[in-house]
Amino acid sequence: MSVSFRNVNDCLVVEIEGEIDHHFVDEVKKSIDTRLMSNDVRNVVFDLKKVDFMDSAGIGMIIGRYKQTVKRGGVTSVACLSDNLKRIMMISGLYRIIKIYNSVEEAAKVL
């Protein structure tokens, strides 16, 4: 699994590739938090188009970053979800607090 970052407007875009499970999630959380601390942006957008598997460890990771961005007066959103990831977002109820966009550009435009 790999993580890459880029800035779009006032957003830190976090692009994850591979499978998000408990094994990898701590490493991803650390790298996002390090970026957030050294970055002026308020918002985080998860670009998940290259994620082919995610379990509830990923939900925990997104909720954790949501709490951090709220503290900074920003928001966290997700983009480019597969049908399976959308289903997990629905089951978890996460869609109630985190918006789902079809593309990163769409998310960045709104934020």
Binding site: K29, D55, S56, A57, G64, I91, S92
Partner: peptide, 9 residues
């Protein structure tokens, strides 16, 4: 940061 959703899923 566990979500508490394992059994639900």
């Amino acid at each position: 940061e566990r979500s508490g959703l394992g059994f639900t899923i």
